[in-house]
Nucleic acid binder design. Structure first.
Lengths: 210, 210
DNA sequence: GTCTATAGAGTGATAGAC
DNA sequence: GTCTATCACTCTATAGAC
């Protein structure tokens, strides 16, 4: 990847995070890179493709981070704890990209949206498998697997919306807070109350767009 | 409030929810109302003011819903349970407005943004007071009050992003799931691990914009 | 690879008639 | 209150020189 291409992508992440995708113009990005706006089209076919490449990179790295964290960890509770720490850590360490990935899906065209949603679904699946396994082993209370997975991921993702690296708590400290909260909820909250029919949601949408 | 004004506001809620604030044009809204776009300016000074009125209405009603739910409920655990049910119920019953309120703050000018953030802060305060009280009474484990309040609210708010009224679970069933998960986390997760210095965050931002 | 110049479409908002 | 007409501007994207 050429250096100019990287410069453009980094400037776009910065601006999409600060102003939002729709409020950021190609001119803004070009200005931040000290090039002319037409020069940008040598690297990206459109503003939408630039957004897609950012999200694609983020999702790929997110998935790899999870897999690395789970590799060599055994036992369902330990694996869930590792997964939560990985998710929180990634979202706080790469806050801007993750903020964009969770707020600018609207900017994607249908094909690209489908691709990103597929990556996100695969990622969520890892958590859903862990919840199901823990529930079957009796480590976690029985509950609605999809709702629980949305709850866990949303909770941890939200850190990317308020976290300040210069703040009082470190990434590890915040991850520890979420880890304990989630494990308590999984173990002690009898989640089956609201869902007598079983664990396979039928009508629920993934956490997507309207 | 005149009927046309209401029609415009409802059409805007529908469109802002479906397409997003920036992707919705004044023409789109006017078309949906069967008026000319210039006619819209008789009721709202700008597109931005229209967004603000929607959010203002939503926040006012959200606050009132919480106060109504807490009125006449005593005991800190029962009050927290009632607050969670109120929050979840409001977000699922008025899904579109709440979706907008949580994703389109960028469209507001600085003065309007400040007003909405102030309303949201007052709302969050109610939850923070409950957490502190429960912690002091020993009903909840000690923990970081701001982080916990963000966690609770984010968790329950997220329902507005995936909930489908035609889905498998009713609003009450989903509220019950969240209620149990949250109370378990508050009671059993020793949240003080990550925060040895006390319960008064210093550098944390509210869950706002970058 | 990067530039200058510009096409082409759409936007929010206003003026003024009725 | 609602209309027609239009302003003034910005935006994404492309053409073509160097």
């Amino acid at each position: 990847m050429s250096s100019t291409r990287e410069t453009i992508q980094l400037a776009a992440i910065e601006l999409f995070h600060r102003k939002g995708y729709f409020a950021t113009s190609i001119s803004d990005i070009a200005l931040a890179c000290d090039i002319q706006k037409s020069g940008l089209y040598y690297y990206f076919a459109s503003k939408e493709e630039l957004l897609f490449r950012i999200l694609e990179t983020t999702m790929t790295d997110l998935m790899r981070s999870l897999q690395d964290s789970l590799q060599a960890v055994s036992g369902v509770e330990a694996r869930m704890r590792a997964a939560v720490r990985s998710h929180v850590g990634f979202h706080l360490n790469r806050q801007k990209e993750n903020f964009i990935a969770n707020s600018e899906l609207r900017g994607l065209n249908p094909e690209h949206l489908e691709a990103i949603v597929a990556m996100r679904d695969a990622y969520e699946k890892t958590f859903q498998v862990l919840i199901r396994q823990g529930s079957e082993e009796g480590v976690f209370a029985p509950g609605d697997i999809k709702i629980l997975s949305y709850a866990i991921l949303t909770l941890c993702t939200s850190g990317a919306f308020w976290f300040k690296p210069s703040g009082r708590l470190s990434v590890g400290a915040i991850a520890a807070i979420y880890e304990r909260f989630i494990i308590s909820g999984l173990k002690d909250g009898d989640m089956n109350q609201g869902s007598p029919g079983g664990n396979h949601p039928r009508g629920d949408a993934p956490a997507s767009l309207p």
